[in-house]
Computed example of a mutant assay.
Amino acid sequence: MTVTDIDVLPNLRDLGGLPAAGGRSTRAGVLYRSALPAPGDARPTAVDNWPARTVVDLRSPREFATRAHPLQSDATVHLISLLSDAEVAAPSQGARLTDIYQGILTNAGKKLAGVLQIAATAPGPVLLHCAAGKDRTGVAIALLLRTAGVEPDHIVADYLSTNEHMSAVLARITRFAPELGQTHPNDRDLRGAIPEAIEGILTQWDAHPGGVHEWVRSLGATDETIRLWIERFTE
């Protein structure tokens, strides 16, 4: 990997252009996802509008507190931790990604509803990221896409596209997140994106009475937030 490669934010993409319910499609320039931004990153070419105006950092408090967020001078940065410091530091010990993702739904569901609120109302583009941009980001992005009416197959395909970027992601974590050196890359990262993991939470949302909309309502999201998000993100 060249210096140029490692100085470009990996796993960055615009979630526009995905088919959604009712013949609609997701709007470009609204929602981005990526791995961990770093100081001195080159201006990315993967998205048209940069920097994002709102950033949702899904890392744990300890990860977040290590240094100032590199985008804070250009964006409003929200910390919404989907895994605790202890959960991030603990070895996965072969735990299935499916179980880890289910744990996020169980333990951080209200925080996911908070992510939806920010995405629906904060200035855009809105960027979601964690360390790798795979697990915590994958769950949160799946919720936003499914709430907007994107079908599961397209959500899974987007999630799996992270595997194309994992070598760059792991190199970046080693260089720019040395505080995670003993736990990253861990076996969760090395396994990459596994379809069964994201399919498990999509199945849970669709099986919930009233679907994903009722699931997120049960955790504090309002009808108005859901409406605003759909109107903002789809066309």
Rank of each mutant, 00 (worst) to 15 (best):
V8F: 09
Q72I: 00
D41E: 10
G181L: 08
A35R: 12
T147W: 08
A177W: 13
D187N: 01
A171V: 11
L128N: 00
S92L: 05
G103Y: 08
E87N: 11
T234C: 14
E235K: 15
L83F: 15
C130D: 06
A142D: 03
A168C: 07
F64S: 00
P123M: 07
A197F: 13
L15P: 01
Y32C: 02
T4K: 15
R136G: 00
I100W: 13
N11R: 06
A86S: 11
N107P: 06
V169F: 12
G149V: 06
A148P: 00
G17A: 02
Y159L: 04
L228I: 11
A142C: 07
G17P: 09
I173R: 05
A120G: 05
V30E: 07
H69M: 00
V216C: 10
H184G: 10
L143Q: 14
Q117S: 12
G16D: 01
D158E: 02
S25L: 12
G16P: 06
V126G: 10
D85A: 05
R33P: 09
R191V: 11
A95V: 13
A38N: 15
A140H: 05
G200E: 12
P185I: 07
R136A: 02
W229Y: 15
L97R: 04
E179I: 07
Y101R: 07
G40V: 06
V216D: 03
T183V: 10
A122M: 01
T234F: 14
I194G: 08
